[in-house]
Amino acid sequence: MALIIALAIGIAFGFTLERAGLGSAPKLAGQFYFTDFTVMKVMFTAIVVAMTGAFWLGRIGAIDLRSVFVPETFLLPQLAGGAIFGAGFLIAGLCPGTSCVAAASGRGDGVAVMAGMFAGILGAGLAFSPFFATTAFGAWTVPQLLHMPYAVVAGAIVLAFAVALREPILIAVALVTALGGSPYRTHTVEPRELAAWIVEKKPGLRIVDSRTAAEFALARIPRSENRPGDGAITVRAAGRDYVLRGGIEAWTNEVVKTQHPTPTTMYFAPLRRRGC
């Protein structure tokens, strides 16, 4: 089933690239001489459509945006790789995807680019050096970099696109998106459930308390770490993120100082003396 989807998506991908004329090297190269901006128009339109679409599908809960694979950031290798790639793009007039389309529509130069691509990847792979893995930041997004909400960053990109195109409808889309809220599905965890996870030492459990250091010193959940931020207590367990419902107050009232103790809450009873 996954492979049928892969094939269908690939066919649609190749079809749209060819429809746009991106199987023709002189047409692609035209962008570098300011005569044909098809590549940029197609690429940035696609980025804006997919970005906005992914945001809203995540927002309404149709997809779990966190489970979509985000290409990892390796800052210096990507800067250097991007530069070398850009030079290759200029010389070849085709990029890897479009070279396949050029080849499929009968162009020998597309086949030559594909052969070169293979040789380049093989050579670079054989010459693997530790530089490839330097400055690794994992799945790092622009909203995280700028400490801004996802919606605002997405809205700003749509706005830039709207202004470039002088398209009022897109300006409205930008504004609505910027005020759209979080695209991530938030799961909440009950204080007592979290208590049970701590007691049973659930694998991969990570509790991040983003209140201030002073608040953290006053009352804290065992095994939690303090990273001052927006004040929420977030829990990561089994690859999923949760927000602790009710924060530290709920934790204190329903676990530590509960009127209805259970074996699990009893585990945390010694904390009462510390006042949390």
Partner: peptide, 21 residues
């Protein structure tokens, strides 16, 4: 030049772990 450009893109894509797509 198509082959050479392709090779450069291959090296760049290997370093960057991806290409235009």
């Amino acid at each position: 030049s198509a082959f050479a450009g392709g090779a450069a893109m291959g090296i760049g894509a290997a370093l960057a772990r991806g290409c235009t797509s």
